[in-house]
C-alpha cells in the first residue's frame, strides 16, 4: 500500500490568523482512488482541500505547520513552485466558475498561460479534455459560444475539462455538485468514476449519500480534526468512532 500513496500529510496544522482551523491532520491518500471528505460545515474540510494546492496562500492571514508530501515532495517547503504544483493538482470549485470566454477559450486557457501555442496540440487537447469531462458530444458544434450559455451542469463539467487540460495528477473537487440539480449531479458522479482511472480525486461533500456513492475512502473531519478515515464501505457500515456514527446516521450535522 505504501508505494501507492500519492499524498501524505504529517501533523498538518492550519491557522487563519489566531484561529486554528486544522489540528494535527495525518492522512495517506492512495493513487487513483476517490477520497470523500465529509463533516459538518466549518469543520475544516474545505480548508484541508485548499491546502493541497496551496490555494489558501491567497488568504493573507493563513499560516501552517507540518508536512504535506505529494509524490515525495513536501509542498509546504518554501522553495516549492506553487504554480507548477497547482498545475499538477487541479481544482474544481463549489460554484462553477467558467471565465467569460468561449467554451474553447476556457479549456485552452490553462494551456495558453503555460506558454503552449501549437494550434494542433491545443485543438487535440481540448477535444481530449472535453471528452474526459463527458462534455464533448454536447458542445463539439458550439465551441465558440460563451461558456455562460451552457447549463449549470455543463458549466461545471466545463470547469472539470478546463482543469483536465493541464494534465493534473490529482483533482480536488470542492462540493462540485452542490449547486446542481439531481440529473446534473448524477452526471458528475458518473464522471468521477470514469476520471479515477487516470486521476487521484479528492472530493469535499456535505452530502453523505454522495460520499457513499462515489468514494473509495472517506475521511470524516470535525472541529478541525480528522476523526476517522477508512474505506468507504467500512466507514458507512461499521464506523469505529461514536461521533462518526452519530454524524453519518444523521444525528447531527
Amino acid at each position: 500500500m505504501e508505494k501507492n500513496i500519492i499524498i501524505k500529510t504529517k501533523n498538518f496544522n492550519f491557522y487563519y490568523g489566531d484561529v486554528k482551523a486544522l489540528t494535527d491532520v495525518n492522512i495517506k491518500i492512495e493513487k487513483n482512488s476517490v477520497t470523500g471528505i465529509i463533516g459538518p460545515s466549518g469543520c475544516g474540510k474545505s480548508t484541508f482541500l485548499r491546502s493541497l494546492n496551496l490555494m489558501n496562500n491567497l488568504i493573507l492571514s493563513a499560516r501552517y505547520e507540518g508536512q504535506i508530501i505529494i509524490d515525495g515532495e513536501d509542498i509546504l517547503h518554501k522553495d516549492i513552485d506553487v504554480v507548477a504544483l497547482r498545475r499538477r493538482v487541479g481544482m474544481v470549485f463549489q460554484k462553477s466558475n467558467p471565465f467569460p470566454k468561449t467554451v474553447f477559450e476556457n479549456v485552452a486557457y490553462g494551456l495558453k498561460i503555460n506558454g503552449i501555442t501549437n494550434r494542433d496540440f491545443i485543438d487535440q487537447k481540448i477535444e481530449e479534455s472535453l471528452k474526459g469531462a463527458a462534455l464533448w458530444e454536447e458542445v463539439k458544434d458550439r465551441l465558440n459560444v460563451s461558456a455562460f450559455d451552457l447549463s449549470g451542469g455543463q458549466q461545471q463539467r466545463l470547469c472539470i475539462a478546463r482543469a483536465l487540460a493541464v494534465e493534473p495528477e490529482i483533482l480536488l473537487m470542492d462540493e462540485p455538485a452542490s449547486a446542481l440539480d439531481p440529473t446534473a449531479t448524477l452526471k458528475i458522479e458518473e464522471l468521477i468514476q470514469e476520471l479515477k482511472k487516470k486521476y487521484t480525486i479528492i472530493i469535499v461533500t456535505h452530502n453523505m449519500q454522495q460520499a457513499a456513492r462515489v468514494s473509495d475512502y472517506t475521511a470524516f473531519f470535525m472541529m478541525g480534526k480528522l476523526v476517522e478515515y477508512n474505506k468507504t464501505n467500512i466507514m458507512f457500515t461499521n464506523p469505529e468512532n461514536k461521533i462518526t456514527e452519530d454524524y453519518i446516521t444523521g444525528r447531527f450535522g
Binding site: D81, R87, R88, I116, F121, V166, E167
Partner: peptide, 14 residues
C-alpha cells in the same frame, strides 16, 4: 500523454 509530456512540464522546481 507521453507525446505531450515535454510540452507540459508538470514537475519543476521553482
Amino acid at each position: 500523454c507521453n507525446d505531450s509530456e515535454n510540452k507540459l512540464s508538470t514537475r519543476n522546481k521553482l
